[in-house]
Amino acid sequence: MEIKQITTLASKEFWDRIRNRWVLAVALVFTAFALVIAYFGAAQQGSVGFHAIDVTIASLVSLVIYLIPLIALILGFDAIVGERERGSLDLLLSMPITRLEILLGKYFGLAAALTFSTVAGFGLAGIVLSPQLDLDALFHYVGFMFSSVLLGCAFLSLAVMLSVFASDRTRASGLAIALWFFFVLVFDLLLLGALVVTGGQWGGEIFPYLLLANPADVFRILNVFALDDVRTLYGLTTVFPPTLANPWLLGLVMLAWIAAPLGIASWRFRK
């Protein structure tokens, strides 16, 4: 594997997103949402203004869990199928580059764009909020940003995988939306439904482990467990064994969610 081929393709993908202002637009969306949530997050309690960072982060987690998977899937769904459909893939494949290098170059370039806009967007909001942050809160906020990046990278990996499998862009976009629905909306409902239907008899023990099968839930757990004030707000966390709540372990699970779809994509792309 030649790293230079990967970085050449990755830097093209990254600068494409900088030049067409994709990175700027997404960063501004993140900044705006973060500030609005920080200011209005406690409106239900009858007051507005900047409040405890834990509550702000909890609200941001709820938002990011919808937004980032969607943005990552939209960013990555046509990575390969788009090149194939436009007709530029043949020329790329005729270069002295392997298919794995093409896949990784595409992925790392897009991941860099997503990471940059996430860090810039929430980072800017963090700077604005910094007078309210003590060191501990800052640590949590940075943790939230970092886990947001991981969440984005995991869904980007899923997007790149389906862009290898899909036969055209239309199908790829449909699959991307279906994946979003499944992981963000349907998955938790299914688990809860299974618990309710079986009266809690079935799956009580494996339930926490099943949550790991969804990168969005891993992200939620990662953030919720870091915040003492918030932990109690989430009913689900009471059933979660503390051993699984180790942030390093959850980080590893996220990395697996990045590596596995890429591995499957690479296997399929070579065929």
Binding site: R19, D90, L91, M95
Partner: peptide, 26 residues
């Protein structure tokens, strides 16, 4: 290789296009 109906990257300039491919070709 010049493919039939070659498709290049619309957002790059002619020079940037060749810079990109020259990097890939070493």
């Amino acid at each position: 290789y010049l493919p039939e109906n070659v498709v290049l990257y619309d957002n790059l300039t002619g020079l940037e296009t060749l810079h990109f491919f020259s990097r890939l070709k070493g």
